[in-house]
Design a protein around this nucleic acid. Structure first.
Length: 265
DNA sequence: AACCAGGTCAACCGCAACAAC
DNA sequence: TGTTGTTGCGGTTGACCTGGT
């Protein structure tokens, strides 16, 4: 490869983090804040690569991390969002306060992927495992007739986002439902600095009442605490956002078509 | 008790987008 | 405008755990 690794491998610790390393990293970030990951290990006195520090902080040490016990509401939300977004774990995680993309990805690959009959992302693992009996549960949508429609899976960053001047409330602080503003999980507020919603524009108009799937969310989630504070979005608005790739409009057109189809649960 | 298979999850890897120069 | 450095992302790996035999 033409490019050197992010850091020299020599003399650096690898593998599981020790309690001491965690302590050092946490203390350093509390004192100096996040960012500058490349220089962080040197400054903090850690024999770790900056990438490793970042990952450890984001996925494990951050104070707002929720660990384990993914609730039923969260599970359903993950399933729905995965149907919409595919393996874009950071976006999905952005809808789930306190959850990390890594945790959701793992949860999907080990639990949800099997439950709903989707292929885990880890294809190599599947090869050595027997087929899974996909029985729909009472709480899950009907098993998809075919592979879930995935927009795309390549990693892309989305930083050109217009943040709302009035950030939506956290999921953990539900607001009363306004009957005039149907709710949608995709409008749940982004709570993580590393992952923001592409539909962050403040001026789009909630309007998805023209499709047979307009109640995709508000029906299924009408009883969900998690989703009582979210508002619907419009695919056209979403697709036109600058942060999406040029071909995203096409993909979203396909997605809109999919949502209009009878096959959509 | 020992072994094995399968499941879970933290960590690593390589790529691509973005920022700085 | 092009190049280089940095950051963030999804995919993948492997150590550890657990349950069955």
């Amino acid at each position: 490869m033409g490019r050197s690794p992010c850091c020299s491998k020599e003399g650096l610790n690898r593998g599981a983090w020790t309690a001491l390393e965690d302590k050092i990293l946490t203390a350093y970030i509390k004192a100096h804040g996040e960012g500058k990951w490349r220089n962080l290990p040197k400054r903090a006195g850690l024999k770790r690569c900056g990438k490793s520090c970042r990952l450890r902080w984001l996925n494990y040490l951050r104070p707002d991390i929720k660990r384990g016990n993914i609730s039923h509401d969260e599970e359903e939300l993950i399933i729905r969002l995965h149907k919409l977004l595919g393996n874009r774990w950071s976006l999905i995680a952005g809808r789930l306060p306190g959850r990390t993309d890594n945790e959701i990805k793992n949860y999907w690959n080990t639990t949800l992927g099997k439950k709903i009959g989707a292929q885990p992302t880890n294809q190599s693992r599947l090869k050595s495992k027997p087929p899974i009996d996909h029985k729909p549960t009472t709480t899950e949508p009907e098993a998809a007739p075919a592979q879930p429609q995935v927009i795309r899976t390549k990693a892309t960053r989305c930083t050109k986002v217009l943040m709302p001047t009035d950030p939506p409330p956290r999921l953990s602080e539900p607001r009363p439902i306004d009957s005039t503003t149907p709710q949608n999980p995709l409008q749940a507020q982004p709570q993580q600095t590393h992952s923001v919603a592409p539909w962050g524009s403040t001026d789009f108009t909630p309007d998805y009442g023209t499709t047979t799937n307009s109640n995709l969310f508000n029906e299924d989630y009408s009883n969900s605490n998690l989703l009582q504070n979210v508002t619907p979005f419009k695919f056209e608005d979403w697709a036109s956002n600058d942060c999406l790739e040029n071909n995203a409009t096409l993909d979203l057109d396909s997605l809109a078509f999919l949502l209009n189809s009878e096959e959509w649960p």
